[in-house]
Every structure is written in C-alpha cells, then in structure tokens.
Design a binder for these strands. Structure first.
Lengths: 344, 344
DNA sequence: TTGTAGGCGTTATCAC
DNA sequence: GTGATAACGCCTACAA
C-alpha cells in the first residue's frame, strides 16, 4: 500500500500552490480559476487523492461527527430513531458515533468524555439518565447536548420532548369511546418522565383507581429485549387478581402489552373478547402478534430526524425551527367495544 | 466557554516540556518520573485538560474508530450484532461509526469513502452487497475490510462466515426426527449466500421437492421491518395450494416464519396442530408470538464480538485467533411431532 | 486569482 | 528521564 497522497503532492503535480488546492476542495466558494481547477482535478485523480479530514479537523476545530447515546439499540424503538437521525445527519454531512450506555451512568459518562476528546461538537442523548451535573459541565465546555425524552435534561441542556401526555390522553379517549370505564395501567417503574406522562394523560381522561395502577418492582434495561415482555406477562396475573376486574388494560409500551396479552391468554382470558389490551410505540412487533395491538404511534423516525436537525442547527449556530410531532392512534384488533352502544 | 487547554498549557503550568506531558498521557510505558507525573496530573486537573485525539490522530495516523456498515438496523438481527461489536470494541478502546446502507450500493460506497477520509482503518460490513471491485480498491489503499455474511466478499476481503448450512442441517434433522417428511421451504429471493446455504443444509437432510421451495418475487430491504412478515403471510397461501400439502414449513428466518404462522392461522390452519413452522435467527420476537417459534439461534452478539476482535487484530497487525460460532437449535411450540413415534 | 508561511495539538527523533 | 524541535495534513491571513 502506497503512502497516501497529500495536498502538497497534488499541488506539485498540478503546478499550483497548496493554498489553491485547498481552496478547490473546500466548498467555501472561494474563487479558483477554471484552468487551475481542472489541472488540480486531474492531478488529484491520478494520485488518487482525497482530503484528509483529520488535518482539516485539527485546523478548523470542527468535527462532522455527532454522538448518539441510547440505552440500548435492543429496545425496538431506537432503531427507528437512529435511522431518522442518520438520514438527516447524512443529508447535512454528518456521521454518527453510536454508543449504547446500557443505562449505566459510568458508561455514559465515559462515552461523553471520549466524544469530547474526539472533538465531537454535539451529542444526542436518548433516554438520558446520566447526572445533570455532568451534562452541565460538558455544555459549559462548549458541547451541544440534546436530550430526547428525558426528565432532568430540561434543567441542563436542550431537549426535544415528545408529548407523551397527549399520547395517554388519546389512548384513554379511545378506550372510553369503546365503553371501557374500569381500566388497569401496567408499567415498569415510573423512573422516566415519559412513563409518568403517559399515565398522567390516561388519568386525565379515565378515572383510574389506585389499585389499578400496577407497577413492576424492578428494572434492568441491560437485560434482553424480552424483559419487558416477561414483565407484562407476569403482571397480567395482578390484573386478574383485582377485586373489580377491569375490562381493559393499558400497558406503558407495546412490548409490555404483548406480554400482558400472552399472560392473559395463558390464564384463559381471550383478548379482546374478554379483556382489551393496548400499548404505546407502534413498533413492528405490534402488528405481528395476535391479536394485532391497538397502540399510539410514537414516530421514532421523525423524532430522530428532528433531533438531528436541531442538534446540527445548534452546532452550526443556526436558528432552530420548532416542529411538532403528533401522536397518532393506531386502531387494531386488541381493543373491542363493550357496553352495547355502537354509535359509530 | 474558555478555550481548551492544550498540552503546551499543561507543560507550562507543570514546569516541564511538552514532550514529558505527552509521554505522561500516552500509555506507551515511556518512563516519566513520579515527581513530574504528579505535577503534570495536578496541572492537567486545574486546567481541565484532556488530550486532543485529533492532534494525536494526525501525528500517528491512527484512528480509534471503526466503521460498521449494515443494511438496516431495523432488521432485528443487527442490534444484537452491533451490541457485540460495541462491547469488544469498547474494551479495546475503539468506537463505532454506524452506517445503514439500506442495501444501496451507492450509499455504501459513499460511506466507505467517507470513512476513508476520516482515516478510519477498518470497517465491518454486514450483509455486504457492494461491488467487489470497490472493496478490493479500498483494501489496496490499506483499509481493513471484514465482511460478515457475504457472498462475494471472500474474493476481495477478509470475512467471518457464519455456518448457515449447518443451521439448515440442524433444523432439518429436528423436523425429520419429529416425523416430518414433506416439508416446504419459504424464502425471500436467494440473493444472499446465507439464504442459499440454509436451503442447501436443509436439502442435505430432507428431500425437498422443487415445488415445495417457495421463493418470493421481490425484495425491498428499505421497507419497514414488517416487510418479510407480510411476505411470509402472503406466501403461506402458496404453501396451502401445494397438491401434496406439507406437514411443516421452514422459513428462511424468524420474521418470515411469523408471517407464515399468521397467514396459516388466517386460513384456519392451526400451528402446530395442523402444520408445523420453524425459522432461523432466534430474535426476540420469536419467543413472543403464538405459538412460540422453534428456531435456530444465530448468535448475533457473539458474531459481532468476534468480528470486532478480528477486525481490530487486523488493524493492529496481530494474529487473529479463529473461534467457531455454533448454531444451536431452540425448540419451542411451533413444531409438533407427527406420525405417532414418540421415542424420546 | 494565486502564493507564502504560520499554526492547529500531538508525537517522535534526537540530543543531553 | 528530560527537553527542543521537526513533522503530521490542512487552512487561512496576508501579501502579491
């Protein structure tokens, strides 16, 4: 393997100065004569020259990478987000350094520091869970942090907040319309703002009794993607143990809902004939299980795209235009009408 | 935001030369006296100094990033692979630049070139689909390419090949043991070596009639993860249209198998009572559907980990130790015994 | 429109 | 053990 050609080699071969070559390859619009341009181009082609981004980075102190930190790509919501991020990032010339924190604060911190050393100018942190102090410190150092769906983040860095409360409202309204009054809510611990907000939204519309709110005791995001499914399956028995048996269950997300359906059917309860079940997220899985799950679409792709645009605006010092992402009800077969009224 | 402290600032404050500071922060084991060390440390702390990786990269011409190119993270097999890559990469001080090619050759090429400009020394390409010529060209330029599960790759770059043939054999043997003779095989187009190999393995054990091999007409990996599911669902009717109706269906992967199950049950065929269904991959979904899917575990995590280790060995010029990844049968409820013989 | 030259932050090669 | 100093590849005043 031959040594890589540098800007100097090209300049020599093309009979111009390095400055001219540099100007030619930077898109800065700096004038370079047609002649010089074409000679540079042919020289570059012959030498198989490509600009060395590292040299440029060192000089201009500007990186075209952005960091993306998520809990785990195993959570089927994040692939969507990531694809959205990547699409708009690519369109604006940026590339993604992916980091799975596994909800480990130390790991997250290490990643942030490492990105900082790499001169990365901005990071999207999804499901942020790190210390606000560290975020603030990095912001002070000039890093742009953008939190997706985080509780504390508001205090210490920019954030895109998806309106989970509204999602809850939408779902609850639908269940109410379908005749459900006595509804249970099944969730992992309310440690994330998103979960609290979904519940709050639901409770705005439906009168959820305290004992109908069933919260799991543990949370281990490191575990396999199947964890929340198993949780839902397990908690379904608590639903059935309720004195006044609910006619419907709202789970905090689709995976949990899938587990609830499984658990119920193992107990001989048919969904949706005997009990309705609904979730949130609209992941691919939701359409594949039986019965297909009624859910609220949290558009991961759009959220990711918006996040990337916002972050890059922040990095480049542009004004960010605020776009709203609207939750949308996806009606499928896991919720049935009860109470006879069929006015639709 | 104050300007970042540099090695010079630290040297000045600590009263030593930049060379000493550099030696202190490089882990090269170059001797630095205790005294100097502690003074450097305290100076660095006061100035909040962290080495600038870009400067180092420029000088040493060595990047600690590796590229990972996959078709799409939406395919639920890749999150596992990625997590495996990340774990061992992180352990060896490397970070991941993620690229989703969406099976677009132009996109893939663009990503490779961009990684090259960034001085990335190695790339893991999963589900490689690009042109062998381009791979070879990049290899010549000194890039380390490692293909995961690719057809042409062998010719032009290193590759880790997972033994799909063996997976096919294992599954076919299981079905045979369970009494299935007349088996159908449902697959997306045989454009990937992995698919061909699975079929070959199956055919080694089971006598699959030509008309029992049902191949989909189209392939669009850009589409949502639900695509292969819909395909399986659709193709299930072709299975049912077979003159000699098979007792079991082997699908090329779990998502397709899930679709087949759905399609069959929509046609009133119960799985596994009326017909057995099996797949490959053992993704999370497989345990969540009804009935849970019998499948072969293709350990994505381990594959990713191995790939990262191998690639980094290649980059660092070390000898790679070859580890075998063994497929493993996962028996669940979607395959039932037929023919009465119950000798187990 | 082009060229010269200094510097971005680091490491490596010498001397000492 | 330590210290000057010359690179690494590129950009950008400034001068022409």
């Amino acid at each position: 393997m031959a040594k890589r050609a540098t800007i100097t080699d090209v300049a020599k071969k093309a009979g111009v100065s390095v400055a001219t070559v540099s100007r030619f390859f930077a898109d800065s619009g700096y004038p370079v004569s047609k002649q010089a341009g074409s000679r540079i181009q042919s020289a570059a082609r012959q030498l198989d020259y490509t600009p060395n981004v590292v040299g440029r980075m060192l000089k201009t102190n500007t990186s075209k990478d952005i960091g993306v930190i998520i809990p785990t790509i195993r959570n089927p919501f994040y692939p969507e987000v990531l694809l959205g991020i990547e699409k708009t990032a690519a369109a604006r010339g940026y590339q993604i350094l992916l980091c799975n924190s596994l909800r480990n604060i130390a790991t997250e911190k290490k990643y942030i520091d490492s990105l900082y050393q790499k001169q990365v100018r901005g990071i999207i942190i999804a499901g942020a869970d790190g210390s606000a102090a560290h975020y603030r410190e990095m912001t002070l150092k000039g890093m742009q942090l953008l939190a997706l769906d985080s509780d504390e983040s508001g205090a210490c860095c920019a954030s895109i907040y998806y309106d989970y409360r509204k999602s809850g409202v939408i779902m609850a309204r639908h269940l109410k319309e379908m005749g459900h009054i006595n509804v249970a809510f099944v969730t992992s611990p309310l440690t994330k703002q998103s979960r609290k907000d979904i519940l709050a939204g639901v409770a705005e519309v439906l009168d959820i009794r305290r004992e109908n709110i069933i919260i799991d005791g543990t949370e281990l995001e490191t575990e396999s993607g199947i964890y929340e499914y198993e949780m839902g399956r397990r908690l379904s028995s608590e639903v059935l143990a309720l004195k006044a048996r609910p006619t419907a269950v709202i789970a905090v997300n689709d995976i949990t809902a899938a587990g609830v359906i499984k658990g119920l059917s193992e107990s001989g309860i048919r969904v949706p004939e005997d009990m309705s079940v609904a979730g949130f997220d609209n992941i691919d899985l939701s359409a594949m299980i039986s019965p297909p799950l009624t859910t609220v679409n949290q558009p991961g792709f759009e959220t990711g795209a918006l996040a990337a645009d916002t972050l890059i605006d922040m990095i480049e010092g542009k004004e960010t235009e605020r776009i709203n992402i609207e939750p949308e009800l996806i009606k499928r077969a896991s919720v049935s009408r009860i109470g006879g009224k069929k006015h639709e």
